[in-house]
Design a binder for these strands. Structure first.
Lengths: 182, 182
DNA sequence: GAACATAATGAGTGCCCACTCAGGTTGTCA
DNA sequence: TGACAACCTGAGTGGGCACTCATTATGTTC
């Protein structure tokens, strides 16, 4: 699979972009046909590039996860330790409000578990964020990574609720953050 | 629909019991066939009693909601105002860990919205629980019902996570409760 | 216990959706 | 530009599932 033909490469990109949108809007249960339609491509083409719907989903989830991980790493490196963890938390929930895929990723791939522990990639940078916050005295010592990830997944799901607004988000996250502080 | 025949009444009960179990285990997306099989009844019988799968789901959700409402009312009447809200919260999350239907109910009926605002039935007793807790000084004045329901739905979803244990539940809920206290 | 309404049965229908493949199209390379 | 592999197309296949209905069975009533 060295060099793709030009049209093949172009179609592959279109399919990924379309899948990104469709799954963000409708969730992982959206049909492959809808992805093909939005990409302006026949179904067979989608399956040529991604033999299985799960392969396509995995590609989307993997890219999404990579984005979250790099955002966390960035904040862990350059952000204020006192606020970086909460800033990351807020960003993730905001992303979840915009795309169903975020919550589905964080809760283990929606229906089936198509990502074998890949989620653990978040543990390292998130752990760093947590440790720095604790060292800076911004978070209680007895808060563990496990609780943070659970709350992150929970809040991301909540962001999909029908009455969710930026204001409600602020108020809800503030409760969670307050509970984490010493 | 005055008087059902004896066998019809019996089957109806069996179907409801089976549906309760099946949807609790597999979620609302479980098939009607599985419900029929577990009830020891033919599919046609299920559809005779509940013309639509949504009708069956609605019956299950309605019963579940009624249970939650009455539990909330009970605690609002007899419980210690300082702890009743958190006790109810804990019970709901525990129930959610045992049955997928709880989280699906709280997040608006899983996929489709088969319950038209019926969820609001929880608002009144939950609001009472909240007000009493605030009057007793156990919860900050600026916490609103909206945030409580959002957190309740969120925590119930989290209870479905793969790594969820009673211990993690305690620690996670404690963070939320701490964030609610003055 | 005969007669009838009510109920149960389960093979069948139609729809959606993931996935296939024979045949047509297009990029690429000499 | 010709020739071929790589690629695209979209009707078709199969499986799952909600829902139907003609037939058979059973509770009820007199």
């Amino acid at each position: 699979m060295a060099q793709l033909r030009a049209d093949a490469r172009r179609n592959r990109e279109r399919i990924l972009a379309a899948a990104e949108e469709v799954f963000a809007e409708r969730g992982a249960s959206a049909s492959t046909e809808e992805v093909a339609a939005r990409a302006g491509v026949a179904i067979g083409t989608v399956f040529r590039h991604f033999p299985t719907k799960d392969d396509l989903l995995a590609a989307i989830f993997k890219a999404l996860l990579a984005r979250l991980v790099s955002e966390a790493e960035e904040l862990a490196g350059s952000g204020d330790p006192k606020t970086a963890l909460f800033a990351f938390f807020t960003r993730v929930v905001e992303a979840a409000a915009a795309r169903r895929t975020v919550a589905e990723l964080l809760t283990g791939g929606g229906a089936g578990l198509r990502l074998g522990g890949a989620l653990r990639a978040l543990d390292e940078p998130l752990g760093t964020l947590l440790r720095r916050a604790q060292e800076a005295g911004a978070v209680r010592e007895d808060v563990r990574l496990e609780e943070v990830t659970a709350l992150l997944a929970a809040a991301s799901q909540a962001a999909l609720l029908s009455g969710w607004t930026p204001e409600l988000q602020d108020r809800t996250l503030e409760i969670i953050f307050r509970g984490c502080r010493p």
